[in-house]
Design a protein around this nucleic acid. Sequence first.
DNA 1: CAGGATCCTTCGGGATACTG
DNA 2: CAGTATCCCGAAGGATCCTG
Lengths: 135, 135
Amino acid sequence: MKSSANPKQPDISVAECGYSRVLEIISNKWTALVIYAMENGSIRYGEMNRIIVGISKKMLTQTVRKLERDGVVQRHITPTVPPAVEYSLTPLGETLLQPMSELRQWGRIHFSHVETARENYDKTNKKDAQSKERS
Amino acid sequence: MKSSANPKQPDISVAECGYSRVLEIISNKWTALVIYAMENGSIRYGEMNRIIVGISKKMLTQTVRKLERDGVVQRHITPTVPPAVEYSLTPLGETLLQPMSELRQWGRIHFSHVETARENYDKTNKKDAQSKERS
DNA sequence: CAGGATCCTTCGGGATACTG
DNA sequence: CAGTATCCCGAAGGATCCTG
């Protein structure tokens, strides 16, 4: 509600930043993995559940539903006796692969640097009360 | 612990995906905004607190500390009478600007599409119990 | 097979008050 | 000015059981 009283820089708001909107879509724990599971085409529910290490059926369903609602994923139901459900990226979903793969690249290239920085930081600031590291 | 029993596709794990590592860094609510606040150079604590709409001092400090620990941000303290603290991106931090701006671009370009998809989804699946939308 | 429903724990993060 | 310290709540997410 408060307009910028400081002309030096524009206000940065969550609402106006396109970035926040993307994070709203892909920032949770499993979404990215689910999208990657579909980057080679259709994949079945159970297959994803096996391939994505550590995900529960609840979280898989929840994640995939949210992505479907956002229009980045589609469901194809084959009404066989045990129902077979296939998931795949929509054209909109495919447009996400590029920017996401850049982030993944960044992680591969720079993450060791980040880990080193963390060790140095923790070494310098000897505070056991923090214990923010996850060996 | 369980190795891939399915040779058709490699396992996708949180631990092995570079993407998850990046999200670990930038996926929380404020990090991206804080980084954007620094993309034009050094900026003071209070200035960020004013520019980033809605952030609390607690969250600003917490976010900036985490980024410092990860090596993407540096602190410069000028020990004047009221201390002046400047924050800026490290070289490592600057490498994040590019992939992040692509995500931001995606949001600007495609988010209206997502909103439309949501409306259609909610219209089709008339379930008030869901109420996942945030007008 | 592909979920839905429930319960329960953890944690992000907001509000407020205090400090060097 | 630039934080730190507490309290507290709602949402994220895991575990378990049930179903068409």
